[in-house]
Nucleic acid binder design. Structure first.
Lengths: 125, 125
DNA sequence: CTAAATACATAACTTTCCTATGCATTTGAG
DNA sequence: CTCAAATGCATAGGAAAGTTATGTATTTAG
């Protein structure tokens, strides 16, 4: 009955402060699951997986992709789609290792934080 | 047998990138549990609660405390301990509300992230 | 035909944390 | 006793990683 409650989904956007440091983890993990993706595709998939609560801006996504490539974690393949360019990113061997490590690190960090904040974090299964 | 494995506890420090945005949440939550604490005490307690994996530096702690006070979330009481000063921080009414909100926000963010990263995060009980 | 979506990119700015430094008192080991 | 370590607060300078704003260009849908 309350107007706010009428929306089908709760999609208040997450505080972007918390996102810091997690963007590269998200990218690495998606690529480790999907073999190869292009930038725009990544933004759409993250939006989808997060129920519209994590919306990547191009200003953060592309610089991060460039950085990860420069660090040797990603490699690219540019594909001509008609007259439009698509740059497909995939993990290097080093990137695969890094993906695993960083996801584990994040899980560990979350465990520590729940301990410090004394909260229970149930993951949706 | 390996020298590194001899330590009784695994206390690799968490990547400070992930800490971004969580520092103020930690402070607000500790104060909401403890009524009143001083800076140094906060660093020690966080160290303890996190098994030495989160070590706050003064360079991040004090500016954050000052900022939260300026925002009206914290109030202070300076106490003279012999010749030494202690500045006790506690939550304002607004700070109490903020503590609850931010902890909830963090929990929500973690749920979203586990969904995106497809990981299960079990909290130590 | 034209607005919205797709697709990439970068410059300027902000926030938040870290390192380094400074000052001062108290405690503990030798 | 002496001096290093721990206790206690504070700030300046810099790094890292986002955000906003802007730019360019093609394709799709109304």
């Amino acid at each position: 009955m309350q107007p706010q409650a009428m929306a089908t989904e709760t999609n208040d956007q997450h505080s972007s402060e918390l996102l810091k440091g997690t963007l590269q983890i998200i990218i690495l993990k998606l690529l480790s699951d999907n073999n190869s993706m292009y930038g725009y595709e990544i933004t759409q998939r993250v939006r989808e997986l997060s129920d519209d609560t994590i919306v990547l801006t191009e200003g953060s996504l592309y610089p991060t992709l460039h950085r990860l490539e420069a660090e040797g974690l990603l490699k690219t393949e540019t594909v001509q789609m008609g007259k439009r360019i698509r740059k497909y990113y995939s993990l290097t061997r080093q990137g695969k290792k890094s993906a695993t490590t960083k996801v584990d690190e994040f899980a560990s960090f979350v465990r520590t934080m729940s301990q410090v904040l004394n909260i229970k974090v149930a993951s949706a299964t």
